[in-house]
């Protein structure tokens, strides 16, 4: 999927937002989408149910223009967080260059986070991807909620970040941490692509 194509002068990156249902994946994309001025705003494809739960996935293509002679595209996806949509999650994960795991910081969602994180690793392994080699960033969302309802970033770090990947506290609805997360993942992915690990012509 991803590649730095020297011949065609193209860079394409697929970034996937993963996490349990209602953790804020779509909110991340909507916030990013929202930061683009009205005149330049296109459409974000979001296939969801009426009760606003992501049924299939969200898709946000970013045409970043020509950089150093390369047409650069980022494609942002979310996966449906609900347990029973695992086939869709696997489909969306195919060819991903990087993953943002959006954890719900609420204490009551702790097990959901663990389950989803485990599911991410299982789905990656099923596709023959070594989770250690895939650029991954953790986002601890909803840190804006009252302290008595959420786990601290340190608690979540202990539970989820045993690989010491970059992690960010966030309030995706209001934008805090959203672009920091995206920037961190983009840097990891671009670094890896240029190092020739994308599996395609680099």
């Amino acid at each position: 999927m991803s590649l730095v194509n020297f011949a065609a002068r193209e860079i394409t990156c697929k970034l996937v937002y993963y996490g349990p249902g209602r953790s804020g994946k779509t909110s991340n994309l909507q916030y990013i989408h929202g930061r683009v001025p009205e005149a330049r705003r296109g459409r974000m494809v979001s296939l969801a149910t009426e009760s606003d739960r992501t049924l299939f996935f969200d898709f946000l293509p970013l045409e970043l223009g020509t950089i150093s002679g390369f047409t650069t595209r980022f494609q942002l996806y979310t996966v449906p967080g609900q347990v029973y949509y695992n086939a869709t999650r696997r489909l969306v994960l195919q060819g991903a260059d990087g993953v943002v795991f959006v954890a719900d910081s609420q204490a009551r969602r702790f097990d959901d986070n663990l389950e989803s994180f485990q599911n991410l690793q299982e789905n990656l392994l099923e596709q023959g991807i070594d989770v250690r080699s895939l650029p991954t960033v953790l986002q601890y969302n909803k840190q804006d909620l009252p302290a008595e309802l959420v786990l601290t970033p340190a608690d979540l770090e202990d539970a989820l970040n045993f690989r010491s990947v970059p992690s960010f506290s966030a309030d995706a609805l209001h934008g805090s941490g959203v672009f920091e997360t995206l920037k961190a993942l983009s840097a990891l992915v671009l670094k890896r692509l240029a190092a020739g690990n994308s599996g395609e012509s680099v």
Binding site: Q30, H33, V45, L173
Partner: peptide, 13 residues
């Protein structure tokens, strides 16, 4: 940034 896509934007926040 320019976004491209198909019609059907769903605003469901």
């Amino acid at each position: 940034s320019a976004f491209t896509g198909v019609p059907g934007e769903v605003d469901h926040q």
